[in-house]
Structures are given as structure tokens and as C-alpha cells.
């Protein structure tokens, strides 16, 4: 039992360290994947363990989005992630206004463009498909 625990701890440490090293590369490549007409605003580095029973997306952040602006949300998962990074955006009425994951078909989108017409506070919620373990980067940029 003790041996298993030590092995598990070592594996966890190694995976954390390896993401630490690759994190900046993933951030840079994700920013670049937004495209030449995108202007960087913010990024979120997400690292989550496995949680199959989760009901809601686990990583949350608030952001002010402004009317008459087209935002692009890019989602990049590290190669060793079990699941794909997905995103829900809720408005101040707690209503989901966009999702990068289609529950019915199981399809995930690598990016979403959002044409904002209502200025306000929005909640970005990130997770990995089926509550799986994963690490990734979510980038928010503006596009013309």
C-alpha cells in the first residue's frame, strides 16, 4: 500500500512538473492559434484531476465583456490530457449563452467566436470532457 502511495505521489509530481515546463509553450501556441486578426486579452491555465461525478464545470473565472465587440475563446488541451478542454459562458442571469461542447453529439469546438451585444459581467467555466483529468489553456482575444 505504502509502495503504491509513493508511486502515485511520484507520478503526480512528475506530471505536475512536466506541465509546468510545457505550460508556457502551450500558452504561446494557444495564443498564436487565435489567428493573425486576434488581439490577446487574457488567458487561463487550467489543470484538473478526474471527477466523473461532477455536475458543473469546475474552473470558474469572471470577466467583463463589452457590447459591439467580437471575442474569440480558444481552447487548447495538453497532449497528455485525458479529456478535451471545454468552456461554458454564462451571463449575469446565470444563463448559458455559449458552450464549446455539444452534449447531444459529443462534439467539441476548438474555438468559439462570440459577438457580444450586452455589456456586463460573464462567468467563464472550464472543464475537461466527462470530468476527466487534463491540463490546458483557455485564451480570450478580440477579433475584428
Amino acid at each position: 500500500m505504502k509502495k503504491h502511495l509513493i508511486t502515485l505521489s511520484l507520478l503526480l509530481t512528475i506530471s505536475l512538473l512536466s506541465f509546468g515546463q510545457g505550460k508556457d509553450e502551450l500558452r504561446s501556441s494557444c495564443v498564436m492559434s487565435a489567428g493573425a486578426n486576434a488581439k490577446f486579452l487574457k488567458d487561463f491555465v487550467i489543470q484538473l484531476g478526474s471527477d466523473a461525478v461532477q455536475n458543473d464545470f469546475r474552473y470558474k473565472a469572471n470577466i467583463a465583456l463589452w457590447k459591439n465587440t467580437k471575442y474569440r475563446f480558444n481552447l487548447c488541451s495538453a497532449t497528455d490530457s485525458k479529456g478535451q478542454l471545454i468552456l461554458n459562458v454564462k451571463d449575469d442571469g446565470n444563463k448559458v449563452i455559449l458552450s464549446s461542447f455539444d452534449k447531444k453529439s459529443g462534439k467539441t469546438y476548438p474555438y468559439i467566436d462570440f459577438i457580444c451585444q450586452k455589456s456586463g459581467m460573464y462567468q467563464l467555466s472550464y472543464d475537461f470532457t466527462n470530468g476527466q483529468q487534463g491540463s490546458g489553456v483557455g485564451v480570450v482575444s478580440m477579433v475584428k
Binding site: 451571463d91 449563452i97 455559449l98 469546438y109 468559439i112 459577438i115 451585444q117 450586452k118
Partner: peptide, 19 residues
């Protein structure tokens, strides 16, 4: 309600609510 259109592998969502 927002309007979603799939395009070039991505999704474009246009908000119809306004401030």
C-alpha cells in the same frame, strides 16, 4: 436568445440580448 452558427470548424455565437 443567442444564435449559433458552425463555421470553419468553430462556432460563432451572436448575442441578441442587448444593453
Amino acid at each position: 436568445d443567442p444564435v449559433s452558427v458552425e463555421k470553419d470548424g468553430g462556432l460563432t455565437v451572436t448575442q441578441t440580448e442587448t444593453s
